[in-house]
Design a protein around this nucleic acid. Sequence first.
DNA 1: AAGGGTGTTGAAAG
DNA 2: GCTTTCAACACCCT
Length: 276
Amino acid sequence: MPELPEVETIRATLSEHLVGKTFVKAEFIYPKILKNSDPETFSAAISGQTIRQMGRYGKYLFFILDRNTLISHLRMEGKFYLKPIDAVLEKHEHVVFHFTDGETLRYHDTRKFGTMELVPRGCEREAKGLCGMGLEPFDESFGGPYLQSMAKTSIRPVKSWLLDQTVISGLGNIYVNEVLFRCRLHPETPVRALETEDFARLAEASRAVLSKAIELGGTTIRTYYSSLGVTGRFQNELNVHDKKGEPCPLCATPIAKIQVGGRGTYYCPHCQPKKG
DNA sequence: AAGGGTGTTGAAAG
DNA sequence: GCTTTCAACACCCT
């Protein structure tokens, strides 16, 4: 489900409930969730370790333990729930973590796309998928000049480029649609056609949109809801995403939907003219 | 009622 | 290399 704001919300929520809990074991109903390990090795490794802190980079969630970090990516529909040990195993619950206090943490993922990986604590950025990731909009050195330096002579549509996590970490389909609306940029604008001013505005808009979304606890659309049943409120702030045919908030032109790089893309044909 | 679409990403193919 | 397409999977909506 999540982009950066949703993962951040999940991180904060889980942190309140999980920090200080000690693992007994982990049961894998669907072992393919695990990368680079098998259930027995993984369970033995986390057994006895205490969750010291919950962390995040981009859309990756970190359970920081005594000696290891459990890196979890929720992909499209991953969720975590805290339940008593005797709660029935629900459909789509693929991993059950047991704690010494008798509680369990259930990993629920309808589409089974999510991944989990255990790395030595402090080595998170070396994990596959995290190495080579671009800066987060909240990194100190992130800004217009950084984006411009990543652009080079790319001819890709700006929408696809912003979704590339090696360029910028944390933007997904919802927020990219919203960022481009705020910047008045057509999603298919070739990166090469962007000017210095555009990169500055993209950087600023990325920070603004994600900050606001974090403040509101993320976005809850369709039937999606966050871990532990927490729902966000940013869906009330969406201008274009999932609003095909609805009037643009600025000019009342019907919002258009097209496919860019195979992803549903929403924009205002009047406010976001193509350039270059 | 089959097919397309879905808050993702990495491997394969061009 | 750089870019695009597709597969992993289950469910919902036309």
